[in-house]
Amino acid sequence: MSGFLTTHVLDTARGCPAKGLKIELFRLSGNGRHLLKTLVTNDDGRTDEQILPASEFEIGEYELVFHAGAYLDASGTPPESPRFLDIVPIRFGMSEAAHYHVPLLLSPFGYSTYRGS
């Protein structure tokens, strides 16, 4: 089995998928990070393509950056200045060629993630 990476973002405050949320994927190495890809979630809160398909998969350390503040602004969540949550970075390692699913459950004042399936 080849490895690949996916995500799913759910807006738990509104009870719906987080449509239109910008996500960036970085590969970490040493003290640096390299931007690999930028995607936006679709109507189902997923990306239209795998974030990291099998053809690009490498074991290593990565960071997904979820632009929560811009999504919350666009979704009509009452604004605050500054937003409690703006950028949500999730750093994780992929140690085997497998399906890694890193979902984000998001609200204006909290979030959670886990290794999904």
Results as ranks from 00 to 15, higher is better:
116 G>H: 13
114 Y>M: 07
54 A>R: 13
96 E>H: 08
15 G>R: 08
69 G>Q: 02
55 S>D: 13
28 L>N: 04
94 M>P: 01
85 L>N: 03
43 D>S: 15
113 T>K: 00
8 H>M: 04
28 L>A: 01
106 L>C: 02
55 S>I: 10
36 L>G: 10
52 L>R: 04
97 A>C: 07
48 D>P: 10
31 N>C: 12
117 S>P: 07
19 K>C: 11
56 E>S: 14
77 T>M: 02
61 E>H: 08
98 A>W: 08
57 F>N: 05
71 Y>M: 03
29 S>E: 13
102 V>T: 09
114 Y>H: 08
14 R>I: 00
39 L>N: 08
1 M>F: 06
63 E>P: 06
97 A>G: 01
107 S>V: 07
59 I>K: 10
93 G>R: 08
25 L>M: 11
58 E>N: 03
9 V>A: 01
18 A>I: 11
114 Y>T: 07
34 H>A: 09
46 R>N: 13
103 P>F: 00
29 S>N: 08
80 E>R: 12
30 G>N: 06
3 G>H: 00
82 P>S: 06
113 T>Y: 03
70 A>N: 05
115 R>W: 10
79 P>K: 10
108 P>D: 09
105 L>V: 05
8 H>G: 09
69 G>K: 01
1 M>Y: 08
23 I>A: 06
12 T>E: 15
66 F>G: 03
32 G>N: 10
50 Q>V: 02
53 P>F: 12
44 D>V: 06
35 L>M: 15
111 Y>G: 05
34 H>F: 13
72 L>T: 02
35 L>Y: 14
52 L>N: 04
101 H>V: 04
115 R>A: 12
55 S>P: 04
8 H>C: 02
49 E>T: 15
18 A>T: 09
1 M>N: 08
115 R>L: 15
78 P>C: 04
54 A>I: 01
31 N>H: 14
111 Y>N: 08
65 V>T: 12
9 V>Q: 01
40 V>H: 11
53 P>Y: 09
